[in-house]
Design a protein around this nucleic acid. Sequence first.
DNA 1: TTGATAATTGCAAGTAGTTGCAGTTACAAT
DNA 2: ATTGTAACTGCAACTACTTGCAATTATCAA
Lengths: 140, 140
Amino acid sequence: MEYVHDIISALSKQGYRLTPQRLMVVSAIENSEDHISAEEIYSQVVVRYPNVNISTVYRTLELLKRLGLVTETDLGGGRVRYHPADKGHHHHLVCQECGAMIDLDESLLGPLQDALLREHNFIADLRHLAIHGRCVDCRR
Amino acid sequence: MEYVHDIISALSKQGYRLTPQRLMVVSAIENSEDHISAEEIYSQVVVRYPNVNISTVYRTLELLKRLGLVTETDLGGGRVRYHPADKGHHHHLVCQECGAMIDLDESLLGPLQDALLREHNFIADLRHLAIHGRCVDCRR
DNA sequence: TTGATAATTGCAAGTAGTTGCAGTTACAAT
DNA sequence: ATTGTAACTGCAACTACTTGCAATTATCAA
Ligand SMILES: [Mn+2]
Ligand SMILES: [Mn+2]
Ligand SMILES: [Zn+2]
Ligand SMILES: [Zn+2]
């Protein structure tokens, strides 16, 4: 069985069209070492496909989010960032003062997720959260 | 002792100027029954102070956030919403599918806040969160 | 009261992201 | 291969929010 990117095969399986623009956006996300922004995706894609428009990047991200294939996270810095939903299950603590980021294991939010499901019948999307606050150094 | 809005007396105590624009923004927030947007604040203020600029509203909100006097929350709908930090301690579950909102007691996040402080020395700002996901009806 | 002065504001331009629409194209059916 | 069609894209205009800068003003000291 040939190798296909997870996201692309999921798109294909669900009947979405595999346009070159989408393939390149997906590839930028899957090849990114960490969290990537829409602008960064765009500037990668535009090199190989010069007349792509950034609204296509945003629309693709919207689709991938809606299908649960990528997560969108506000890590500060004025733009949200994306990464594959099934890659590196974890969260981040973000200091609002100095921008420091602390990685957090996903297990810390398990109990909360369970409680919300049990007590409110609500399926919380708690994959790759950014929790904002103050780190030790910026404590007042 | 005379009555002063909590937020105004806090501003004053910390040495910030009490401009008419600020007083009116604060008043709009404190008088709002629930969560209010920047645009809604602006449209209240502009009636009594016609040449106020919306950037002043945004800058005032930024200040009030930074001082911990108001909370900013993304409840969906394409704009964030504000309310006094010390009013109605609670959170919201927001369904990404249908927009339904379920109120949540603040106690549910106490254990998480404690764990983050204990295990990571991080003071998480978990006042008035919006947790996104799917409600029972939109479950798949 | 009356200045001095730094904080604050209005304005205009900028950034991140969204949307309506007309034209293009992936994909399926022939 | 050709063609029909809805999905998708590019484009341009728009929304929410931000920012640099010059003009205004709240506050304080004289
Ligand atoms: Mn991450
Ligand atoms: Mn609320
Ligand atoms: Zn910090
Ligand atoms: Zn729902």
